[in-house]
């Protein structure tokens, strides 16, 4: 068991931590907010807000 074996286990461990963080936050978010709110993003907002295109 040298340093590289330790690194292997650390990498497995960190992968699981990052994965769990994402999944837990995902579940939390989906149950806290309504679908309607989560999907309220619209394409083209930027144009409508900044400038009218001129002819």
């Amino acid at each position: 068991m040298d340093i590289w074996n330790v690194m292997e286990y650390t990498a497995w461990g960190l992968s699981i931590v990052f994965g769990l963080y994402i999944v837990i936050d995902w579940i939390k978010t989906d149950s806290t907010y309504s679908e309607e709110e989560l999907m309220s993003s619209r394409e083209g907002e930027l144009e409508a807000m900044t400038e009218e295109q001129q002819l």
């Binding site: 709110e37 989560l38 999907m39 309220s40 993003s41 619209r42 083209g44 907002e45 409508a48 807000m49």
Partner: peptide, 20 residues
């Protein structure tokens, strides 16, 4: 959501209807 880009009150653009 009930936003529709062709609607006048709730087109989802800027102040009219976008939350996120």
């Amino acid at each position: 959501s009930n936003t529709d880009i062709t609607s006048a009150e709730m087109d989802g653009m800027g102040p009219k209807g976008t939350k996120l």
